[in-house]
Design a protein around this nucleic acid. Sequence first.
RNA 1: GGGCAGAUGGCCGAGUGGCUAAAGGCGACAGACUGUAAAUCUGUUCUCUCACGAGUACGGAGGUUCGAAUCCUUCUCUGCCCA
Length: 424
Amino acid sequence: MNFIEELRWRGMIQDIMPGTEELLSKEMVSGYVGFDPTADSLHIGSLVPILLLVHLQKAGHKPIALVGGATGMVGDPSGKSEERNLLSEEILRHNEQGIRRQLEKFLDFNCGERSAEMVNNYDWFKEISFLNFIRDVGKHITVNYMTAKDSVKKRIEGDTGISFTEFTYQLVQGYDFYWLYENKKCKLQMGGSDQWGNIVTGTELIRRKAGGEAFAFTCPLITKSDGSKMGKSEKGNIWLDLSKTSAFEFYQFWIKTSDTDAEKWIRIFTFLDEPTINELIKEHAKDPGKNILQKKLAEEVTRFVHGEESLQEALVTTEKAFAQKDIPAEDLTVEDIKALKGVTQLKFQKNKLSDGIDVISFLAETGSFSSKGDARKTVQGGGVSINRKKINDIQLKIDSSFLLHNTYILVQKGKSSHFLVEVV
RNA sequence: GGGCAGAUGGCCGAGUGGCUAAAGGCGACAGACUGUAAAUCUGUUCUCUCACGAGUACGGAGGUUCGAAUCCUUCUCUGCCCA
């Protein structure tokens, strides 16, 4: 099965330029995806572009990861209703390093001519003068063409407007493609479907300026079936960096996937082949309560991103926190509690417990809740458990008798938000 | 430079002197039901307070008023039009 066919059955192709498939079957192709350096770690949202590159490399082509240092300074108007904040060069460089480290885990940067490569468009843009840019690049694209783009049109018609800076964005990104075409023989760009407009500007530029032919395809933006944005948990973004999102939390994110999403996502986010996935879907349908799909999905993605060891750790924690949730907290061994790696760990001062402290203050001061009011309301609503017992008395005093093994107190907010408070 | 419109809670958006901690929606959190889903229903969603209540808060700063998100002055920012 070729690269495009592979992605097609996985549901990862939205738009594709005619001729792309022929090109890929004819020769080894360098293809690139852009990453936004807005943070020093990638998050789940970047997983799809990463996977595109991985699939590309697997299919015998050469993946190029472009970090948008320059474009990050400009800001992409696509999908944004407002002007973005600009990032400083220092921050961009720092973020680039973080992203590079992560990509190295997924792509092979040392396998001969197919080696993955990473570039930062800041490196070529910093050399270009404004005058040269508008003369050599701007001349080839009409404003009419640029304003016809949906992302631009929306902003022009909207009531926040669009700055010249962001308006220029598609030219800047388009030039990336042109630069890679000229310097790296890159003939393919991939990206999310929101990038289609920017990508096409690139192929257009290559055609007009270099007389060359370049290709592209986009993958659908991943959304949840309820229409909400994907990749957020109650704690915010799900990052690919273990210090930002533990393996346990990462695993939990995938476990909580709904059935409809799971069927789509297991195709996109895992490398399992079609028969295996169809089999899993069939299995799952027999007894959805077993969450076969979600478990497999979570397992595969966690292993891919964080490795076998972290996966096992996440599985153990999950086991302790969920599968054994009926075991009274008092019966948990120290090992059991220590195995709760990855749940949010909090500290609390022991001397505050000597006279007892009311639950509300306790919850707020440990940091499990953002404010006392928040804690109180959740307790009143029946949403808090301490040591696996639901509490409904907001007057309750927490004292040393709550300590498990003289050190720990388990706090649960809702069903799946666990905190381990270490009292020292 | 001139004219006009606008700036409200995480977001969208109503509100044009007291009944406004501010409608409604989205998002988020919790509960019920379940499968650590989805859908649905319910509650919560500025801070402090068990509560009564208090304190902050409608772009910034002043002012008018017993009382201001609402009126005035001024500044900042945004959009539209003219130059």
